[in-house]
C-alpha cells in the first residue's frame, strides 16, 4: 500500500494485476456508474428467462393496463395484461444480442478487409472508397427501410444490414493503421526480417491496433443499439411475438395517454444503456488511444 503514492518511476515494474487494480481505484464516478449499469444489463441479458417472473406472451385479460407498483407487476402490465417487467427483461436480451452480433460481425469483416486492402491495395481500396461514397449518399435508416420493403423484415436481415453498414468504418481504420505500421514502422521492419504477412498481422499489427479497434467497437455499439431500436420502433426489426426494446416502445406509443409506463420503461433502458456505452467509450478512448478522434 505504501508504494501506491510513490511516483511511477520509483515503482519496480508492478504486475499487470496490481496495475489493473490501481487503475480501477482511479475510475471517475460516471465511468463506474456506466460500467455498473452495463454489467447489470449483460447479466440481465444472460439470465432474462430465469429472472422474468412471467412468460412474455402470457396474457392475463383480468389485469390489463395495471399501473406500475402493483403487487405481482412491479412495472405494470400492458393492454393484454402481459407483465411489462418480464417483457422488458427479455427485450434487453434480444436488443443486446442483436447489437453485439452486428458489432462483432462488422468489426471482423471490416478488420480483415482493411488488412487485405493494406496488403493488396488496388481493388480492395477502390471497393472501400466506393463504399464510403455509398454510405455518404444513403442514410442507414433509409437503406434499411428500403431493403426491408424488398426482402422483408426479420432479425437476420436486421443484423446483416447493420453489419453491412458498419464494416466500412473498421476497414478504413484497420487499413490506415496497417499501412502506417507497414510503411516505415515496426511491421515493415518485421516483414523485412522475412515474416509471413499472416505473422505480421497476427503477432504485430493486430495486438497493436486492438486498443483502437475496441474503442471503435464500443463507440459504435451505442449507435447500433439506437439503430436497432429505431428500426424496431418503426416495426422493421424484431417481429412479434418476440420483443425488443424498440418494438416495445413502438407498441406502447398507442397507449401513451392511458398507460405511458409501457413505453417509458424501455425508453429509459435504451437511453441509459446508450449513454453508458458512450461514457465508457469516451473514457476508454482517452485512456487507451488518444489518436482516435
Amino acid at each position: 500500500m505504501t508504494d501506491m503514492t510513490a511516483p511511477p518511476a520509483a515503482i519496480t515494474q508492478p504486475s499487470r494485476l496490481s496495475r489493473a487494480i490501481a487503475a480501477l481505484r482511479r475510475l471517475p464516478l460516471a465511468v463506474e456508474l456506466a460500467s455498473a449499469w452495463l454489467l447489470a444489463m449483460f447479466v440481465i441479458a444472460a439470465l432474462a428467462h430465469v429472472l422474468a417472473p412471467y412468460e412474455i406472451s402470457e396474457i392475463d385479460l383480468m389485469s390489463r393496463l395495471v399501473p406500475p407498483g402493483s403487487p405481482g407487476h412491479w412495472l405494470g402490465t400492458d393492454e393484454l395484461g402481459r407483465d411489462v417487467l418480464s417483457r422488458l427483461l427479455v427485450s434487453i436480451r434480444s436488443s443486446l444480442l442483436i447489437a453485439a452480433l452486428a458489432t462483432i460481425l462488422s468489426a471482423t469483416i471490416g478488420t480483415v478487409l482493411g488488412f487485405l486492402a493494406a496488403q493488396r491495395r488496388g481493388v480492395f481500396e477502390h471497393a472501400i472508397l466506393m463504399f464510403v461514397d455509398f454510405q455518404a449518399a444513403l442514410p442507414f435508416i433509409i437503406m434499411a427501410l428500403a431493403v426491408s420493403a424488398f426482402v422483408g423484415a426479420s432479425v437476420p436481415v436486421l443484423v446483416g444490414l447493420m453489419a453491412f453498414y458498419g464494416w466500412e468504418r473498421y476497414a478504413r481504420l484497420a487499413r490506415g493503421l496497417a499501412l502506417s505500421a507497414m510503411g516505415k514502422g515496426y511491421a515493415g521492419a518485421v516483414m523485412q526480417l522475412g515474416a509471413s504477412p499472416m505473422r505480421v498481422f497476427m503477432r504485430h499489427i493486430l495486438p497493436n491496433v486492438s486498443a483502437t479497434l475496441v474503442v471503435t467497437m464500443t463507440l459504435s455499439f451505442s449507435e447500433v443499439i439506437l439503430a436497432e431500436s429505431g428500426l424496431s420502433f418503426l416495426g422493421l426489426g424484431v417481429q412479434l411475438p418476440d420483443s425488443s426494446l424498440g418494438n416495445m416502445i413502438g407498441f406502447g406509443r398507442d397507449y401513451l395517454t392511458t398507460a405511458p409506463w409501457i413505453m417509458l420503461a424501455p425508453a429509459a433502458v435504451i437511453t441509459l444503456t446508450s449513454l453508458s456505452v458512450s461514457i465508457l467509450g469516451d473514457w476508454l478512448r482517452d485512456r487507451l488511444d488518444p489518436s482516435v478522434s
Binding site: 439506437l226 431500436s229 416502445i249 406509443r253 401513451l256 425508453a267 437511453t271 446508450s274 461514457i279
Partner: peptide, 22 residues
C-alpha cells in the same frame, strides 16, 4: 450534446407528446 447523441429521437418525441399534449 451527449444527451442529444444518446437519447433516440423517438423517445424525445414521445416524451414531448406526453408532457405537452397529454
Amino acid at each position: 450534446a451527449v444527451a442529444g447523441f444518446t437519447v433516440p429521437s423517438f423517445v424525445v418525441g414521445l416524451v414531448l407528446v406526453l408532457i405537452f399534449s397529454v
